[in-house]
Simulated assay, not measured.
Amino acid sequence: MSGRHAKQTALTLKLTGGFLAASLLGSTFGAAAHANTVEENTKTSSEVTASALNLAGLSGVSKGGLSAIQVKLDDKSKASSSTTSEDRAGAQSSRDSDEKQAIAGVTAKQFVAEAKTQLGQSEDASGETKFGEWYADTDRAGETVARDGGSRSAYLDAEWCNMFVSWVAEQTGMKDTVGQDAWTVAHAKWFKEEGRWGTTPKPGAIVFFNWNGEKDLDSIVHVGIVDHVDDDGTIHTVEGNTGNKVQEKVRDASQIVGYGYPEYKS
């Protein structure tokens, strides 16, 4: 045993003795107080103290010394508890910071690249997709069911273009700035309420469509993600629920109601 370990062992024995002595003192004083009502018990408090200390192997420690040991141990326990609370708070702060950094660190190019990893994903024979299955199990689904009616299970085989966009937002840590919804109209209105709505195409923008050329938000029937825009204004997109799968498309500006703008890293 090293010298350091020997010292630690001795200290541990002494502190353990202090706890035992304190425990014995508490029990013995309680018994003595009760027994004082009976004339047979004639021990003084000094004798009780000495007896308790002897049992603890600390016969040389005074009552004052024992109290001092207990106070130190109590202080140590409080300090340990405080440190633990501070550590927990620090860990939570670190996690929150990491999440904010993840959001701040996503570029439009990275967001589109994540969407493209799903190219070719399609509905199964029953019309269900991984995106609808994911969305139906989210907290957001509970909120949109409360808003729109229906049930979580209805999302499993519902139109899923907006659930695809929401899924990409989840995977990239961008749900707070991209938004999450299953209804294109509500999603577009959310962007407008946030002050992030417009008619200029940008890479990474969430693009909302009406095939008849109507421009009212309530007329929106489809949504996708802008990949890039050609010099002549041709808009390239990544969309879910197009031909029952995730596909790259080329869209005419006349079919576009407007754009929602996520907050990407430059």
Rank of each mutant, 00 (worst) to 15 (best):
Y261Q: 01
A35G: 09
Q8L: 04
A89I: 01
T44P: 02
G224P: 09
A125K: 12
F164I: 03
G3I: 00
L66F: 00
V145W: 09
N210G: 04
Q247H: 12
F208W: 10
F191D: 00
T138G: 15
V229N: 10
V48C: 07
A253Y: 11
L217D: 09
V226Y: 10
F29L: 07
N244S: 15
N241V: 13
D181Y: 11
T138K: 05
H222N: 06
T9R: 01
D75A: 10
G173H: 14
L66G: 09
E40K: 15
Y261E: 00
K189D: 14
T37I: 15
S94H: 10
G150M: 08
L156M: 12
R147N: 11
T28P: 01
I103K: 12
R196T: 04
I256Q: 03
D216F: 00
S51F: 08
A146H: 08
T117A: 08
Y135C: 12
V61F: 00
N210T: 12
K265A: 13
G179A: 10
Y135D: 07
N212I: 15
R196Q: 06
P203A: 02
A146Y: 03
D124S: 12
H187Q: 07
S23N: 07
I220Y: 12
F209D: 00
T44S: 14
V250P: 15
H228K: 12
V178K: 06
I256D: 06
V168M: 04
L73M: 05
R4K: 02
A158D: 11
A102G: 06
G105M: 04
K78M: 04
L53E: 06
E39S: 14
A154F: 09
G65S: 08
N162H: 09
T184W: 09
F191T: 00
D218E: 13
D124Y: 10
M1N: 00
T49I: 11
V178R: 04
T49N: 08
S82N: 03
L58H: 05
V226N: 15
P203G: 09
S122L: 02
L13R: 05
R196C: 05
E40F: 05
R196D: 05
S153Y: 09
R196G: 07
E263G: 07
T144H: 09
D124M: 07
K76F: 01
G142C: 11
Q121A: 15
H236C: 02
V106S: 12
G258S: 07
G26R: 11
A104Q: 07
S2V: 00
F131N: 11
K109P: 08
R95H: 00
A32D: 14
K109N: 13
N36A: 14
S51W: 11
N162L: 10
T44W: 01
L66Q: 06
E263K: 10
V207H: 12
S45C: 07
E39F: 14
E86H: 06
D230C: 06
T28M: 05
H236K: 15
N244W: 07
F19H: 05
L58P: 06
A158H: 06
G260K: 06
T184H: 08
R95M: 01
K192L: 03
A10Q: 04
K78R: 04
E248F: 02
G65C: 02
E248L: 07
Y155V: 14
